[in-house]
Design a binder for these strands. Structure first.
Lengths: 207, 207
DNA sequence: AATAAATTTGACCAAACGGTCAAATGCCGC
DNA sequence: GCGGCATTTGACCGTTTGGTCAAATTTATT
């Protein structure tokens, strides 16, 4: 183990622990409701130590948002892995479902950020997201022109996909309540994923 | 104007003004982020007056939640206005879309409450909502048995409807950003509503 | 008009919060 | 093992916040 690795390691490890705790507290309480004391307690470090790594609560929040933003972009790229609408949509919806399932906490932080009017990621909405939507809308329009999809407005399709997949993170607790207190099993989740994919694809089929 | 009407009027009117302000502040900032001072300022009353009508912030929050709960139940009842799946679903989805459009603020408060694990409406989830879902699931199952819908799990259909419709309240700001800063017009919203209804209904059609 | 009840409001308070700081401790190359 | 840097931590502080209170004012009742 060479020197810089260890040196980085202490910082990297502590930042990871703090970020993970922050994710949980932000997801449960929102930005204002989260206290640095609670995050520090969950991370198992003194509050002053947390402020040593992340100078302000806002900076810590931004770091959490950036983490899920990266994951969002990764999932978004799966849309481009095929030029067949059924395959592309199935992949993309599946990736977004998996994101909600594997990162429910950061997904909820993300959803809250959007709902509050995107105070931190407004720039992302106006640039990267707008571009992504414009480009993929063109692809969907081409599929429609080729008779592979019935005529729809692509934007409303994306909204439906974002909403439905995100819901499996946002409303996980509600779903658990409706399953008599048992969280959705892996098997149930896979069934839900399949149904979402099939419903949307069937819903877009040309007449 | 008889006496009790006026007497009730002062209280009723002030409660209404405060509730409306509370809705906006809770929607924008979350429960913890909302301050009674901000709510009072928006309502145009001194903070002490707010506490005269609603003793605690939690009580005020509960009142806001109850208001949207009533609206939720009203929309839910539209599912039962027809026994034809296409008509019942179209009505229900339309009602839920209209709810998100006409009450975006309380809808966002509702969504936050669900996302935070329903600290206030857990009882509703376990009783009224569970019952509603169970009963309507049976109806959907019957439609499937009658060959009117392809085989699906009703719960995941409801999740899709709730998520998609709720999204038009939750993500209104995001949509505005993607429309170059212009909020969805009534015309666009009606088109979105139609597309959501048609996509879901087509997605459920038997093969 | 007199009395009681409802409403209004500025001033105030204890608790909680985000953030600071200086001193202590650990870690590393030399 | 020493000097320099990163890390740790308890104590502390100014501000914000939900909520209280008593006095003033308005409204309703007789």
């Amino acid at each position: 183990m060479d020197k810089p690795l260890i040196k980085v390691s202490i910082r990297a490890e502590n930042e990871r622990v703090i970020l993970e705790a922050a994710e949980a507290i932000f997801a449960a309480a929102g930005f204002k409701g989260a206290t640095t004391a609670a995050i520090a307690a969950r991370a198992g470090v003194p509050k002053a130590n947390l402020h040593y790594y992340f100078p302000t609560k806002a900076a810590l929040y931004r770091a959490v948002i950036e983490r899920v933003l990266t994951a969002w972009l990764a999932a978004a790229s799966s849309f481009d892995e095929s030029d067949d609408p059924r395959e592309a949509l199935a992949r993309y919806i599946g990736a977004k479902m998996d994101l909600a399932r594997s990162m429910p906490l950061s997904s909820r932080v993300w959803a809250t950020e959007i709902m509050r009017g995107a105070p931190v990621i407004q720039d992302f909405l106006d640039t990267a997201l707008a571009q992504w939507v414009a480009e993929r809308s063109r692809i969907v329009q081409r599929w429609i022109a080729e008779g592979k999809l019935r005529p729809i407005e692509p934007k409303y399709l994306f909204y439906m996909i974002w909403a439905t997949t995100q819901h499996y993170a946002n409303a996980a607790h509600e779903m658990t309540s409706l399953e008599n207190g048992r969280p959705l099993s892996d098997r149930q989740f896979e069934a839900a994923k399949r149904q979402v994919i099939e419903t949307i694809i069937a819903g877009l089929a040309p007449p």
